[in-house]
Design a protein around this nucleic acid. Structure first.
Lengths: 187, 187
DNA sequence: GTCTATATCGCGATAGAC
DNA sequence: GTCTATCGCGATATAGAC
């Protein structure tokens, strides 16, 4: 075993979230977070680019997960079907995480600086989807458009899911959101 | 005439943009910008919440312009038609500003911190559209969805417009982007 | 790990506009 | 006088340099 716990990033995240909830993001300092995690300020900034970043640890794996999923899809599947399958898979993957997601969302949406960061993360997700589609031989512009539509639908579905009852299936929200978008542009 | 020029915010913006272009955003300090505008650091922060904000002066009027336009539309016009008319009007409004928009875009997209801010601005725009639609009696969820689709299309159109030839009409790009989105969700 | 620059903001004072 | 925009000083925390 190493002298220091190897999960410093996770411990810092676990220390930060309750502090943000109790005192607010702005009035929580990085030294406070580091001390609560039993680490130093310097260590915090070695794991996270800035104070906001501690709330986006999980998001780092998303682009990787996207390219893994897209690479594993059957080559003959259409671009739209592939993307929809990916959205469904992502929806099923987080179905059991509603409560922590909602808590984190409350923090993020309560602070413009954090909201900004989340929107950039969503943009990076769109880029990952776009690149995977291009890898599959899809036209660049169509890939770009489809990726933008996908993240828009996912976001709409997320809002509907979190606003609904406890047993609501995220996957169904994705389908609803997709149909709503179609009706919007079509009707 | 007042002792101070009343356009302090504009002068700070005019001073900042060339500095960002020449030295980069990160290595330009607020005191530098203030000095170039003949003002003090403290004054900079009274007009702008942070250093990034100086690049988003124009965006402040966008939500207002949206609600003005939507309020002036005929009540019997459908939600979709109203939004599409709004996008076309906005497209015509900036048709002659391609070069400064492209320059500003180069700065913003070169710096993640600025890109973040732009994405938040786009989100506020979507909220403004959404609220105007609700004012017109449109269902809340449909307003939300339509607003998200609208900003997505506008953004796609902007990219296509800036990537195209000098005489390309932004309004046509909006139509193209809208059709592409429809084909994506429909096909 | 330590040191330091600089972004950010609170407070009090000032100077003209009306 | 009152109001508003500016200035100067100073304090703190982030964030990067060494």
């Amino acid at each position: 075993m190493p002298r220091w716990s190897p999960d410093a990033a996770l411990r810092l995240e676990a220390a930060a979230i309750p502090l943000f909830e109790q005192q607010g993001f702005a009035s929580t300092t990085v030294p406070q977070i580091a001390e609560a995690a039993g680490l130093t300020t310097r260590t915090f900034f070695r794991h996270y680019a800035d104070k906001r970043d501690v709330l986006f640890l999980r998001d780092r794996e998303f682009p990787h997960a996207v390219s893994d999923f897209m690479a594993s899809a059957l080559p003959e599947t259409s671009a739209k079907a592939t993307v929809r399958a990916g959205l469904s898979a992502a929806a099923r993957g987080i179905q059991n995480w509603r409560e922590p997601i909602a808590r984190r969302r409350a923090i993020v949406h309560g602070e413009p600086a954090l909201h900004e960061r989340e929107l950039l993360q969503r943009h990076h997700l769109a880029r990952a989807i776009e690149e995977s589609l291009i890898q599959r031989g899809i036209d660049a512009w169509q890939s770009h458009t489809l990726a933008a539509v996908a993240v828009t639908c996912f976001d709409l579905a997320m809002e509907r899911w979190l606003a609904g009852p406890d047993d609501l299936l995220f996957e169904e929200c994705v389908t609803s959101a997709w149909n709503d978008v179609r009706d919007c542009v079509d009707g």
